[in-house]
Design a protein around this nucleic acid. Structure first.
Length: 205
DNA sequence: CGGCTGATGATCT
DNA sequence: GATCATCAGCCGG
C-alpha cells in the first residue's frame, strides 16, 4: 500500500487519544496525501529537525506547529527513510465530545497541560459540526501536541488508529486545501456528504 | 455561505 | 526576514 492508498484507507477509521481520565475518539473523514517530489510536502527539501518523523516507517505521527496557533497531525506513509505523509483534516467525534469542546477553548500554549478551566470560561459553545472540522480544530479537540510527534499509531500507546466504527461512505477526491504550490494535484480525500469534512462546498461534491 | 484580515511563533534561508 | 498543510471574527450578498 502506497501513501495515496493509505490516505484513502484511513477514511472511516477510528483515531483514538487516551488521556488519563478520558478517551477521545472519532472517525477520520478527510485526509490529504503529501508525496516524494511534491513541493508542498514538508519533506521536499530533505530531513530537518522538524520533519524527521515524517521519515519514520508508515504509521507514525508527524505533529508540527504552524501559524503560531495550530498543531497538525499527519501519519507517515512510507518505509523508513522516505518522507511521505497524510494530513488528517476532518474527524467525526465519537467519544469524549464534552472534553473535546473544552480542549477547543484552550490556547495552544496551555494545551496538553492538564489545565481545564482557565481559558474556557464564558465562550459560547460552537456547533458540533465545527468541533473537529479542519486540521487545526481536529488536533485541538483531541489535544494533539508536539509531545506526540513520532509515536507509533499502530502500537499500544496513548494515540492510535483503530478499525472502522461503521461502514465508510463513498470517497470524494479534490485538490488540497491551503497550499500555494502543487495546488492542482488531486490528493485530498473525503467521505461524501459528511458534515465534518472541511473546505468550501465546491470542493466537497 | 464566501471572501477578507489579523494573530502568532516556529522554522529555515 | 519570509513563509506558513489555519482559524475566528467580521462584513456583504
Amino acid at each position: 500500500m502506497d501513501t495515496v492508498e493509505l490516505a484513502r484507507f484511513l477514511i472511516g477509521k477510528t483515531l483514538v487519544h487516551d488521556l488519563p481520565h478520558v478517551r477521545l475518539s472519532g472517525r477520520i473523514v478527510e485526509t490529504e496525501a503529501y508525496l516524494v517530489g511534491d513541493a508542498a510536502c514538508h519533506a521536499f527539501r530533505g530531513v530537518t529537525p522538524r520533519n524527521r518523523t515524517l521519515f519514520l516507517e508508515r504509521g507514525h505521527a508527524y505533529v508540527y506547529f504552524i501559524y503560531g496557533n495550530h498543531f497538525m497531525l499527519n501519519v507517515s506513509g512510507q518505509r523508513e527513510g522516505i518522507g511521505e505523509g497524510i494530513l488528517l483534516r476532518g474527524l467525526e467525534p465519537l467519544e469524549g465530545i464534552d472534553w473535546m469542546q473544552l480542549h477547543r477553548a484552550e490556547k495552544p500554549s496551555r494545551r496538553g497541560r492538564g489545565n481545564r478551566s482557565a481559558d474556557s470560561a464564558d465562550k459560547k459553545a460552537a456547533p458540533l459540526t465545527e468541533l473537529s472540522r479542519g486540521p487545526g480544530r481536529l488536533a485541538a479537540a483531541l489535544r494533539i501536541t508536539r509531545s506526540l510527534d513520532g509515536v507509533d499509531l499502530c502500537a499500544k500507546g496513548p494515540l492510535w488508529l483503530g478499525t472502522e466504527a461503521k461502514p465508510t461512505g463513498e470517497i470524494g477526491v479534490s485538490v488540497r486545501i491551503g497550499i500555494r504550490v502543487e495546488a492542482h494535484r488531486l490528493l485530498r480525500f473525503y467521505e461524501r456528504g459528511n458534515p465534518f469534512v472541511s473546505g468550501p462546498r465546491r470542493l466537497n461534491s
